[in-house]
């Protein structure tokens, strides 16, 4: 009996300090005081050459407030392009991945700003709450509201849904599917979406690793579920995924999302040899941009 008593106490003590693992989904860095872009000395997502440079006059640092989870937060974003053209031309909203902040993804934003020629499309890249210069904590709700704030900013500047392309990479595929799948809940909804290296859901991640059918609720509270959200999406989809993605398997994540899509048209770009992050490089920047341009213009 004594032994059972000790066991019971130990279990209760350990149970009382339970933790969740949601925080590990977001690898944010909010230690910076300004965006340094080309002068940023930290690690970045890709190395792109000078041919993809953008002029200072086309770079706009913007801020807007959001209200999320009972807090008013100031969100920071970067727009590359001619502000005056937002009211008349097509704009790409780029939802970045889970790492760091906008400086990390700046080379990607430069790539997209060169899509179809210099500044052919305006590109807005938002730092989610808790990332970079954006206030707050990185949570699922805050991430969606940060993106919604970006949509509002675009709308206030004259953008309409029919001219919006939303592009999500990795974690950024979550707000992309969320907005496209639930258009009435957001200020704008995209006319087309691009998903690069999407993850299906945290449940798939867990089951890939454990081999057994564990539910995600054993580890996280987040409800991000692209594999289900994509079923509600009714706009054209471009899916890009590295076949050698050793982080989010093309088979268990990408293909599931792609196969669950039931919208009007879908295009797949599988990149042989491409890992999670390097598909633009492996495919070749020109080829990569050509595929995206073809999708947008068709």
């Amino acid at each position: 009996m004594k032994a059972l008593y000790i066991l019971g106490i130990a279990t209760l003590l350990l149970s009382s300090c339970r933790k969740r693992l949601d925080d590990f989904l977001f690898n944010n860095d909010n230690s910076i005081t300004e965006y340094k872009l080309d002068n940023y000395e930290g690690r970045t997502t890709l190395d792109v050459g000078p041919e993809y440079a953008v002029a200072d006059s086309m770079i706009h640092f913007i801020n807007y407030p959001i209200v999320s989870e009972g807090q008013t937060l100031n969100i920071s974003a970067i727009y590359v392009g001619d502000l005056a053209k937002i009211a008349t031309d097509t704009v790409i909203l780029y939802c970045h991945g889970t790492a760091d902040h906008n400086d990390f993804y700046w080379p990607r934003q430069k790539l997209y700003a060169n899509l179809g020629g210099k500044y052919r499309f305006g590109v807005l890249m938002v730092d989610y709450a808790g990332y970079g210069l954006s206030e707050g904590n990185p949570t699922e709700a805050n991430m969606y509201e940060s993106v919604n704030g970006g949509l509002k900013w675009l709308k206030d500047n004259g953008l309409t849904s029919d001219r919006l392309i939303q592009f999500g990479f990795s974690l950024g595929t979550a707000p992309t599917c969320e907005v496209a799948g639930n258009p009435s809940s957001f200020h704008l909804s995209p006319s087309k979406i691009i998903l690069e290296a999407p993850f299906a859901s945290s449940e798939v991640m867990v089951q890939d690793a454990s081999l057994l059918s564990f539910p995600a609720s054993y580890f996280v509270n987040v409800k991000i579920d692209n594999a289900e959200e994509i079923k509600k999406v009714n706009v054209p989809l471009l899916w890009i995924h590295g076949e050698a993605d050793s982080f989010l398997s093309i088979h268990t994540h990408g293909e599931l999302v792609y196969n669950n899509y039931a919208g009007p048209s879908k295009t797949a770009v599988r990149v042989p040899g491409g890992n999670h992050e390097d598909t633009p490089f492996i495919l070749g920047y020109t080829n990569y941009l050509t595929e995206i341009l073809k999708f947008i213009e068709n």
């Binding site: 989904l25 970045t44 889970t98 790492a99 867990v206 454990s210 996280v220």
Partner: peptide, 23 residues
């Protein structure tokens, strides 16, 4: 590639727990 490595480091903490709950 760099993001992948970084995410990996963080997600290890997340997934290691899921994995060890098996047999």
């Amino acid at each position: 590639m760099r993001e992948f490595q970084f995410i990996r480091k963080q997600f290890c903490l997340f997934l290691l727990v899921s994995i060890v709950i098996l047999s």
